[in-house]
Amino acid sequence: MSKKVLVIGEAREGSLRNVTFEAIAAANIVSDGGEVVGVLCGDGDLSALGQEMVYYGAEKVITVSNPELKTYTSDGYAQAVMEVINDESPEGIIMGHTAVGKDLTPKLASRLESGLISDATEVVAEGGNIVFTRPIYSGKAFEKKEITDGLVFATIRPNNIPSLERDEALTGQVTEKEVSITNIRTIIQDVIRKSSDGVDLSEAKVIVAGGRGVKSAEGFEPLNDLAEVLGGTVGASRGACDAGYCDYSLQIGQTGKVVTPDLYIACGISGAIQHLAGMSNSKVIVAINKDPEANIFNVADYGIVGDLFDVVPKLVDEIKQMKVNA
């Protein structure tokens, strides 16, 4: 049954996040030949970003521009998106399972008294039903879930559902909608940027993670270098965070972030079950550890038994060399 499906887009520092395009692809599956409508909130002229959503498969896009929507607040965005929902009456809604998605979608679902399937890694149409696969117990298991009543509402995990090919021949209307934003109960006073170059762990294609073996905050330096040369970002195990080598926001594992990058390089991480839960579904895993018995080698595709302070700098040089040769 074809459906009208709304995709809530998300921009960060002036460009759309990849997960927005992945959400359009997921919405395309849910819509089953129906219409995929994008919505985008922010401040200033959003038409170019709206157009970009069209190139990735949205049939029309509604932009809501307002100074009050410059930075995300749940009250402001909920108000704006709810107005678009009321206008469009979609039968499905898809958004990325990002910080904004996690904050906004439960509130919308609650207002709409609808179900919500969070953090889906796969979406398929099976005999008229839409089936979502999502990790439970931090990826130690998975469940297949469907909506039994009302709106097909889901968030999708970044990096898992491939986006459609960008096609500039695609056309669709991008229209601006005026919404007056009132009653924002939370005021954002300041944002302190800590994440490297705005690459979030959950969206990173390459993660270089350090454990207790990194030994100190300074010990993360070679890992930063490796992440930089690979265009990735740095993460950590709980051991490294508890020891104070790095911020808890970098923690990967059952408490902390669950990540699925294309390449995960574990440096000086022993591989406790809680850490493995957070990263073992990465596509390719490299382990570098002094202890040949370390559990991390049981999930690694490639392992080097050695001192990370010896191996990692050499790896940086080798990759730089490879890039020069290419």
Partner: peptide, 18 residues
């Protein structure tokens, strides 16, 4: 409003090449 229709374990990761 939602229903779990199946629970399964991820394929066991094979230890790779050291």
């Amino acid at each position: 409003k939602t229903k779990t229709i199946e629970i399964f374990l991820p394929p066991e990761k094979q230890a790779g090449k050291v």
